[in-house]
Design a protein around this nucleic acid. Structure first.
Lengths: 274, 274
DNA sequence: AAACCAAGTTTCAAATAATGGAACCAAAGT
DNA sequence: ACTTTGGTTCCATTATTTGAAACTTGGTTT
């Protein structure tokens, strides 16, 4: 009946190993072997071997003084490559920077990761930027501006799956608390081309968000301008939409036409039969 | 006893899958299936299955418009957790920020990743920071200030292995070009407690670097203050050592005594299975 | 000091998943 | 219509993973 909501359809050994990796991540702090064992659904020896393998591979790091494991440094290196070879984030960065300076408010760039919002870039025109402490952060999709803006443009099947994974936890009195309310809101967003966060996630925090779409209509990400009710209001944020739209359009175009340098890696497989 | 870090020790299926991941990363741009196949040492069907698995797991992302694979968004999320749960980077950040403002020069925080230097944080008191574009970057160990500072305090066995993996490629006329020269320099650094980069990697770029050590003498990372010969000189940088030392000592102490806050506040990010 | 306990590590036959040669398919080229 | 290129699937063989249990290590209690 349900269209495979098995989000973790155990992809063989590799899938299981990555499950352990996620488990370590979920603690948010370095962990002992037994911490992992307690929450893992594999037997002792299996968990042990996975942790050994992941450590030897640099996906986990072991602190011999405290006898704890944490996520490894190799992930930081890989994430750097991921960010760099993404067609969105590097292209968007200068536009976001300009927009942030322009409107004098915090700008977020987000993408959809499974059913969550993942912030891939952030510019706060006031404070110095915090690096990994902000980028890489995840949040709920159903109660953030960027999340709703992206969901509004998903095709039906994908949307159903994403909605099915929302928790609909009530954070504030404005939080959309069920699927019906969310779907109504998404239709609204789609007809306007932009959406708001009306203090749905955190009190006093409001934002406008626009989706970043390919020419074919595929969702690449979303851009939002965030502020607080103490500084501004929804109407004022709405007035910024045209300026955000300019940035969004530019990003979408560049992201789609962007060719990575050295596309001529094809060199020669030409039958060197001479 | 000591875990010998044979860098190419294929740890079963998981190791092979991660090898494919590294391969994709090494292109620095989105790749086609055949791109990976060409450089991989596994047969077609095997590479295919690994790519499928990694994609389904979010470690790779697939662009259906261009039919290319890139490193996945899940890595960014994991790297965020890695950075956060590292006992070094988050603790060091405020100190680095203060130091950078204090001395008015660029400050780097690096760790050793296999035999390379990995920059985990960077503050440039002039420009706005570029996020992932800087953090996660790797560089050679034998010709950078941070690299040498860390190597100087490794125990013999580990050092031998790290040195064995250095390329000793000559970047400038000051580059240390063989093991003997490097070892001599390391002894020197150890006796001083700090080291320099004397335009060994890039012309005009110089720096002082200090290792960050645990009370037991284990190397946690290194801190450097970087500048150019047009702005300053080695003697002036050397004069900054006491101030850097203050930061380094503070970071080392905090990193070792750091207790992670109660985990109850985090959680919920990864609804583990279901 | 012996007994105990908890945490971590190793073993090994059975169960399972990975392997890869080859066939297959689709689209582009000739 | 035929060939090539790039990508996907099959399936019998093979190698790897699995996990209960035994073992080791280090710390605590009696």
């Amino acid at each position: 009946m349900v269209v495979s909501l098995d989000k973790r359809k155990s992809d063989g050994t590799v899938g299981k190993a990555l499950e352990i990796l996620d488990l370590v991540a979920s603690f948010g702090r370095p962990v002992r072997f037994s911490d992992v064992l307690d929450v893992a659904e594999f037997p002792k020896a299996t968990v042990y071997r996975f942790i050994q393998t992941l450590t030897s591979q640099g996906m986990l790091s072991y602190d011999p003084d405290r006898q704890t494991y944490a996520l490894g440094i190799r992930l930081v290196r890989l994430a750097h490559s991921a960010w760099q070879q993404s067609s969105l984030a590097p292209v968007a960065h200068p536009h976001i920077e300009k927009l942030a300076g322009d409107v004098g408010e915090t700008v977020h760039l987000a993408q959809l990761d499974h059913a969550q919002v993942l912030y891939v870039d952030k510019i706060d025109p006031g404070k110095p930027i915090e690096m990994f402490s902000q980028a890489g952060k995840v949040g709920p999709a159903y109660c953030t501006g960027v999340g709703k803006a992206m969901m509004a443009y998903l095709e039906a099947l994908h949307l159903a799956e994403v909605i099915g994974q929302q928790s609909f936890h009530v954070f504030t009195e404005n939080t959309l608390s069920d699927e019906a309310a969310l779907r109504a809101e998404l239709i609204d967003i789609r007809s306007n081309g932009y959406g708001f966060d009306r203090e749905e996630h955190e009190p006093d925090i409001i934002c406008v968000a626009l989706p970043i779409l390919t020419a074919r209509g595929r969702v690449l990400g979303a851009l939002s301008v965030t502020s607080s009710t103490q500084r501004t209001n929804l109407a004022a944020l709405e007035a910024l939409v045209p300026r955000i739209q300019v940035a969004v359009t530019a990003i979408a175009n560049e992201a789609e036409s962007w060719r990575f340098p050295d596309q001529s890696k094809f060199q020669s497989i030409e039958t060197a039969k001479g």
